[in-house]
Amino acid sequence: MYVQKNFDSASSMWDYRILLEMQDFYKKRKQGELTDTILTNRVKRDIGKFYKQLSSYSFDKFLDIKIATEDTLKIAFVSYKHTLTLKGIVTTEDTMLILISEDNGKSWLIQDWTIKWIADQIDKKLF
């Protein structure tokens, strides 16, 4: 969804822990104590900068899915392979999404830690 520049739809599926982690990320880098809409807009801007530089993206295949139960949470670890072209460099990577259900699998929220990696690249002025 990020590739299609549909951030609002993608972020609506995030587990709340992502924004807590991103708030801590920006604070540790002395970029302010961002909250609520300001935090979401900052994450959206960073992701937008990254995907503006992205020439192509393809989902290649699912690699593995594991489901675990911790206390009242059901957690799915979804590994997949994707290929992206960024600044003329083609990279194929394995990555993971973590899906969390607090209602025994009736609904799922997503932890996509790629956004933290993207924000780190932006912070290092690589994009």
Rank of each mutant, 00 (worst) to 15 (best):
M1Q: 13
Q4C: 08
K5Q: 14
N6L: 08
F7T: 03
F7R: 00
S12Q: 11
M13D: 10
W14S: 13
Y16L: 15
Y16G: 15
R17Q: 12
L19F: 13
M22L: 13
Q23A: 15
Q23E: 12
D24K: 14
F25K: 04
K27V: 02
G32A: 05
L34P: 00
T37G: 05
N41V: 00
R42K: 15
V43D: 00
R45V: 04
R45N: 12
R45W: 07
D46S: 00
I47S: 01
G48W: 10
K49H: 14
F50G: 01
K52G: 01
K52A: 04
L54S: 05
S55P: 00
S55Q: 15
S56R: 07
Y57L: 12
Y57W: 12
S58K: 14
S58Y: 03
D60Y: 07
D60F: 00
K61L: 02
D64R: 09
A68I: 09
E70C: 09
D71L: 05
T72M: 12
L73F: 03
L73C: 05
I75C: 07
H82F: 10
T83C: 08
T83D: 07
T83F: 06
T85K: 08
L86A: 04
L86Q: 02
G88P: 07
I89G: 01
I89W: 04
T91M: 06
T92R: 02
T95E: 09
T95M: 10
M96D: 01
M96L: 09
L97T: 02
I100N: 00
I100P: 01
S101I: 01
N104T: 01
K106C: 05
S107V: 07
L109W: 05
L109P: 03
L109C: 11
I110E: 13
Q111E: 14
Q111T: 10
W117E: 08
I118K: 03
I122K: 12
I122A: 08
K125A: 12
K125W: 03
K125Q: 12
F127G: 07
